[in-house]
Design a protein around this nucleic acid. Structure first.
Length: 270
DNA sequence: ATGGCCGCTGATAGCGGA
């Protein structure tokens, strides 16, 4: 038996509920981390997920924008959320669950997109993004992150050259500027060390994306994507990860897809 | 070559996304 964990920026969970339920049918994930639910806690489709087999839910929404949620087949305890940069937006929720190897803390992040101009002096959104990364760096250096942790979400950064359609053309575009990619890679490689579970299974010389802009008239042929969505784990968890997949077909789901697709990792042996 | 789009709101124009 394997356990599957998914991250997906759903861009309105209410509008996209039929697509999520279709995905659940197809992939049978155990834990689903959703970003940009774009609803308040009481607007979240609790009953639909419960009926689909996911009665355990940690929802941290807000009106209109942002918002994150974890829905799970397994009980969630110690549900918590954290505010970054003293800006009261719903960008993080965490919970503890047991997938058979003892307590696992899972964190769901929605890192700020950062606006257009990659200069913190003139763009407060970019300043927020860098501040968020700085606070993550400090937090992850704490001893609890030595083991038993999985972090996932829309990080809004494509860290490697082959995580974007054109490294050269995106070096000055927010999501792939050196200041962002270096900060994210420093978090990955610093602290107690994380494993990028998707790149554990897909070689770095292979182009890989999880997001395609709505503005591209023909996203599939243009294929100007970026890998913005990530799942990392501490070494003790990562060693049991046996597969990773990006479910690209959901970018073309019906007439109303999200601009992000699900990222799935599987763990062996419960 | 990023933006031609998208979802939300005491909506009907403006914000945020990336």
């Amino acid at each position: 038996m394997t356990v599957a964990v998914v991250t997906w920026n759903i861009n309105s969970v209410r509008l996209r509920l039929p697509m999520v339920l279709d995905f659940i049918q197809q992939y049978q994930p155990d834990v689903l981390m959703l970003q940009e639910i774009k609803c308040t806690n009481d607007q979240f489709p609790t009953n639909a997920f419960t009926e689909a087999g996911y009665p355990h839910q940690a929802v941290h929404g807000q009106k209109g924008y942002h918002g994150v949620a974890i829905v799970s087949k397994f009980p969630l305890t110690d549900i918590s959320s954290r505010v970054f940069c003293e800006i009261p937006e719903s960008r993080h929720v965490s919970a503890v669950l047991d997938l058979g190897r003892g307590p696992l803390t899972v964190h769901n992040f929605y890192i700020p997109a950062g606006g257009d101009e990659p200069d913190p002096e003139i763009n407060p959104k970019f300043k927020h993004k860098l501040g968020f990364l700085s606070e993550l760096t400090s937090w992850f250096s704490e001893p609890e992150f030595q083991r038993g942790h999985l972090i996932a979400g829309d990080f809004n950064i494509a860290p490697h050259e082959n995580d974007v359609w054109s490294h050269k053309q995106l070096l000055k575009v927010v999501s792939h500027t050196p200041i962002e990619t270096e900060a994210l890679n420093a978090i990955l490689n610093g602290g107690h060390g994380w494993t990028d579970l998707v790149r554990k299974h897909v070689p770095f010389d292979q182009k890989l994306y999880s997001w395609w802009s709505y503005r591209s008239a023909d996203w599939e042929n243009a294929n100007k994507g970026r890998r913005l969505d990530h799942i990392w784990a501490t070494a003790d968890i990562a060693e049991h990860c046996i597969a990773a997949e990006i479910a690209k077909p959901y970018r073309g789901w019906a007439d109303k897809p999200s601009d992000h697709v699900p990222v799935i990792v599987r763990f062996a042996g419960v």
